[in-house]
Design a binder for these strands. Structure first.
Lengths: 113, 113
DNA sequence: CTAACCTACAACCATATGGTTGTAGAACAC
DNA sequence: GTGTTCTACAACCATATGGTTGTAGGTTAG
């Protein structure tokens, strides 16, 4: 299995910030469904091309998406590994929570004896 | 199993925005590890009490944390279910990605025949 | 070649964000 | 009662964010 390189706190900031906007989440979803150009994406939103271009740039800086030049177009691909890393991050918090809940349950159980 | 009520897009915005700041992620981690007052949390950071108070408020609006009044203190508890919902959200994107990757693999396999 | 298309990027604007200090009230300690 | 602690909240400031329009360059179509 390939070792994923560790994310810096800045990386994590960028990932969650990128996901904290509904337009960007929608762009990511569409990019996962079908790779498409920035202008093809832009046509699907009620905002300027430049605005969508900026959203794509935010997703790109977060590593959630990759742009591949194709002639005059830039094809936007979703970047699976980063999504997986984001899931792993949240899983850590959930696991902390579960561990803590178990710990408390154990203490309660001990005190009952 | 209890039905988790659906998150609005605003809810999701708030959750990811709350997670997009390292101080808030750290506060959440500490709150998971041990429930503590806002001032106890504030003492652990090199910023004003008011600043930490605002970060806790952001986590609270996102539902990641709950404040319980205890005398003159407000005890900050982590809220597990919201963390679980956040994981589920990201899992959806990851699953979309996996489904898409499988679909592409299938097409490639078909074309090879 | 010329026109249309796709992208990049700058400039600008309103609002949000993350920090500060200061004021004020409620609860506890003595 | 008095002073200290904990919290809430307002006001303020610098910067970031999400949107706009406009300009300019590279690519494709006719």
């Amino acid at each position: 299995m390939v070792v994923e390189h560790d994310l810096t706190e800045d990386d994590v900031d960028r990932i969650f910030h990128a996901l904290a906007d509904r337009t960007r989440r929608d762009v990511l979803g569409r990019a996962i469904g079908r790779e498409q150009s920035v202008s093809a994406l832009a046509r699907q939103y009620d905002m300027s091309f430049a605005a969508v271009q900026k959203h794509v740039a935010v997703l790109e800086r977060a590593g959630l998406v990759v742009k591949e030049p194709r002639g005059r177009e830039q094809i936007v691909h979703a970047n699976g590994p980063t999504i997986t890393q984001a899931v792993a991050l949240l899983d850590q918090y959930e696991q902390l929570w579960i561990d803590r809940a178990n710990q408390i349950a154990t203490i309660l159980h001990t005190e009952k004896e």
